[in-house]
Computed example of a mutant assay.
Amino acid sequence: MKIVVIGGTGLIGSGVVRRLTEAGHEAVAAAPSTGVNTLTGEGLKEVLQDANVLVDVSNSPSFADDDVMSFFTTSTGNLTEAAREAGVGHYVALSIIGIDRSPEIGYYRAKVAQESAIRAAGLPHTILRATQFFEFAGAIADSSMVDGAVRLPGVGVQPIAAVDVSTAVAGAAAGDPANGIVEIAGPQSHTLDEWVRRVLAYRGDRRQVITDPNALFYGGVPGQTVLLPGPDARLARTSLDEWLAAQH
């Protein structure tokens, strides 16, 4: 199959392209650097010619509330229209577990809008919702700095390795449309503060992580189970210990 991966040069996308290619598919990495711009529509018609599947793992260059909402609504509108015109038979999008339970987080509101646009387009689709990536621990710490320390709530989280996300997205792209949401998560649950504390300590980062039930997570205070997967989630293999051991 010809599978076009929007965001195919990024952390997840490059892994998706590699796995699909190894499986014998014609995987095409599409990004602004390859002449495909989902905001302007540039290159979409050409790259989607004869494509069987479109995979969207793209991300907004700015996480400001208005910018990220504009990115996902504009980009998804252009992608669904181009996919319909090209006769694409399966639209796969990567999303995030918990987005519909934290409306105070601007990025999550934008992802909800993206999912809604995909469903409204009427295309055969699979929305793959993942938990937080192990790779995001440092960025979460950076965004949670208050008075020289990292402040995070002790809410549940079940992070997943980016390599496992890429594998799951590639598997979804090569399979039949679910026409709904599929959840993927890491094999073990932690608390948000504990997870970030362990990653920072392993890296030799001396910042203190303070457990604060009122601390913000990207602008919102998540409930105890907001970031956790449901009972039917597909669990990946890589544990936090295994991921840390591979970070040399």
Rank of each mutant, 00 (worst) to 15 (best):
Y218A: 13
D65P: 07
V28I: 15
P159A: 14
V92N: 04
A137K: 09
A172T: 02
A23K: 00
A31E: 02
I184R: 05
R19W: 00
V209K: 12
Q188K: 13
T191F: 10
V17S: 00
G7L: 11
V55Q: 00
F217R: 01
A139T: 05
A162T: 06
P213N: 11
R203M: 07
Y218G: 01
F72E: 00
D193L: 02
Q247H: 07
R109S: 11
T9C: 09
K111E: 08
I96S: 01
S116Y: 10
I96M: 09
T126Y: 02
V182M: 05
P61K: 07
A178G: 00
I6A: 03
D212Q: 09
Q158V: 05
G156K: 08
V28N: 04
V165H: 02
T225M: 09
Q247L: 13
S75D: 03
F134Y: 15
L192R: 09
K45D: 14
L94W: 13
E115P: 11
G87C: 12
A83D: 00
Y91A: 01
Q188Y: 03
F136E: 14
F134P: 11
S102V: 03
D100F: 00
F63M: 15
P159I: 06
I140G: 07
K45H: 13
G180T: 06
A172E: 03
A173Y: 03
P187G: 08
A113Y: 09
A130N: 11
N214L: 09
A168V: 01
G204R: 03
A137Q: 07
M1G: 15
T40Y: 08
V4Q: 03
D100G: 04
E26W: 00
L240Q: 14
L94V: 07
T38N: 00
S70V: 01
Y218C: 03
T238E: 11
H125V: 12
K45W: 00
T131S: 13
T167Q: 12
E85V: 11
F72Q: 04
M69P: 01
V4T: 14
R18F: 00
P159N: 09
I99G: 05
A245H: 06
M69I: 07
P32K: 14
V68Q: 05
E135Y: 08
R101L: 10
I12V: 15
Y108Q: 09
